[in-house]
Simulated scan of single mutants.
Amino acid sequence: MTAITSQTRAILFDHDGTLIDSERTHFELWQAIAREQGVTIDHDFYCRVMAGIPVKQNAQDLVSHFSLSVGADVLAEKKYAAMRDFLATQAFPLMPGAKAVIQASVEAGYTLAIVTGGSGLSVRRTIEKHGLDGLFSTVVAAEDVVRSKPAPDCYNLALKQLKFSSEQAIAVEDTVHGMQAALAAKLRCVAIPGDYSDGQDFSAATVTYASLQDWCAAELND
């Protein structure tokens, strides 16, 4: 089985963990914020509860799980501020093979978009720093929707902006929460688990690959 069909016209890429290698940095920033509150986030907790989830929900989950007295909005703003500081001087590195896969997707005639539960600033840095200008027809980020992943709103908005039906597009995701958002938007979904999501259940995905390069070789270079 493949995700791309004869009807496919657009490929909607997740950003964090799919196109950029960012999850370790997100994990470390959240660890620092948690330590300020006297609690510890370990790798297992982050992978199970936080990876692939937008900042506001992460903050709410931390407050709930650890019974913190601080408001979730305060924690979220600390994370936003930490990310702004990080992105002020750099962009996240691309995942292995990401640029080649993006170029192969364009050369194959597909319309591309980035649909992320992260910030638009992070996406802009990626596009600027890695020479990807003009390759994506639209970007939908966390601030563009009321409900972010795993709700389907971000994908529905991207489809609306691109003027494609769900049958004409596929999603490429690295977490189960992103996969759930894509499937809820009635998209076929390529799952590419990473270091922070390889223990998640991707059985509902249309197809799963070990890497972007494997997917590209199987479906774009076929």
Rank of each mutant, 00 (worst) to 15 (best):
A151W: 06
D16R: 01
T208L: 06
D144C: 10
Q180D: 15
P93A: 01
L183H: 10
Y209C: 00
V74M: 09
L112G: 06
F27N: 15
R84H: 08
I20D: 05
G120N: 12
K160W: 09
Y209A: 02
F66T: 05
F45P: 01
T116Q: 11
A158Y: 08
T25E: 12
G117I: 05
K160G: 14
P96H: 03
I53A: 04
T208Y: 02
G194D: 08
P96K: 04
L12W: 13
T111Q: 13
T116K: 12
H26P: 04
R124A: 15
M95N: 05
L62T: 04
Q60V: 10
I53W: 02
Q31H: 03
A210H: 07
H65Q: 07
A141H: 15
V101M: 15
F13T: 10
S105Q: 07
M1H: 15
K56W: 03
V139I: 15
A184Q: 09
T2F: 14
D61P: 00
D153T: 08
A104V: 11
P93V: 01
G109D: 03
L112W: 03
C189N: 13
E219A: 06
K149E: 11
E128V: 06
E167A: 15
K99L: 04
L121Q: 08
E128S: 09
T25F: 11
T116R: 11
Q57M: 02
I102M: 12
P152R: 14
K56S: 12
D21M: 01
L157G: 10
S197H: 06
D198T: 04
A171Q: 12
W215Q: 03
L135C: 07
I170N: 10
A51C: 11
L62K: 07
